[in-house]
Simulated assay, not measured.
Amino acid sequence: MYQLMVMVAALLWGAIAIFIKKLTYYGFTEMEIVTIRVFFAFLWLLPIVIFMENKRKLIIQLKHIWYFIGTGLCSIVFFNWAYFKAINMMSISLAVMLLYTAPAFVAILSAIILKERLMKKKLIAVFTTIVGCTIIALAGKEVGGDWNTLGFVIGLCSGLGYALYTIFGKIALRDYDSFIITFYTFFVSSITLLPFFPFWKKAQSLPLEAWLFMTGLGLFPTVIAYLLYTYGLKGIESSTASILATVEPVSAVLIGITIFNENLFIGQMIGAVFILSSILIISERSRRQDPIVFPSKVDLD
């Protein structure tokens, strides 16, 4: 049951491209879509907060607000924008593979910022990720219309931004539990973006379907997926969850091929194998280690 929940969560994450493509079709920019995701996710989280028994846990110290600026703006907003932009500039397959360079970024940033040891296994994983990205980059001409140098760089930025959640999240965990971090991450992101990207003005003239996709973006590949993944971590090791979560790029690739008629070339497939292999290398870790802070999708450390 726990394994199934993790895999369902990964499938929901892989399906996010459907929402991105649809909302782009309705005329929303990438930053507007990011705003839609964090705002509706925040709204979906509110009932959980309202029915919390111990509401004192919601109180945070003002000096710690930078935690949530880090998890919210530097990570969630930045990586979502970069990921959505990459999806629209290249193929879904390429975008999701570049997002999964995050474990390599975490390994490097953890050594620099958190002073964690850069073990041999992590170095091998980082090298494997670099090889995978290099193969994808060199295969750019083969990909043709799906390839974009700027999109490739932005795709790598999505991996960097996603990795930053782990860094800021680990620091925040010293003072707050995972749900509080999640709630304030989306809260800070929402109140920061809403004044600059008032998506509702554009949405007023759109049909009901557009609103369903907006609310669905905040619910299915965001709140429900994260809750399922977190619950699944209660019954399985984080390393196992990491491996199961690789269903996400697989499902994203299949969606790109079957729904959006994208092509998957040999260079992409070889590069993808290297990147996914790096995740499996990092996942082979001590069973006693605690799971990653919610809402990280894979065990990135």
Rank of each mutant, 00 (worst) to 15 (best):
W200D: 14
F186D: 11
E209G: 08
N263Q: 14
L160P: 04
T185N: 08
T230Q: 09
Y165L: 00
P207K: 02
F186R: 06
P221N: 12
I266Y: 08
G159F: 09
I180F: 10
A163F: 09
V250G: 06
P198D: 02
V273Y: 04
A272S: 12
Y229K: 10
Y229M: 06
L254A: 14
F213V: 03
V223E: 06
I154L: 04
L194I: 15
G232E: 02
A210Y: 04
L138H: 00
Q268Y: 09
L227N: 12
P195N: 05
I266C: 03
V153K: 01
L150E: 04
L244G: 13
L227Y: 13
L254I: 12
L156Q: 10
G151C: 05
L206V: 01
A210M: 14
D146L: 09
Y176A: 11
W147I: 01
Y231F: 11
T222Y: 02
L160C: 09
K202R: 12
Y229F: 06
A137I: 12
A137V: 14
A210S: 15
F152A: 01
S242G: 15
L212G: 13
L254V: 14
S242V: 13
L228K: 11
K201D: 09
N261L: 05
E142M: 07
R174W: 03
P207V: 01
K202C: 00
E248I: 08
L206F: 00
I270W: 01
I224V: 15
I191H: 05
S239C: 01
G218K: 04
L173W: 02
F152M: 10
F260L: 13
N263D: 13
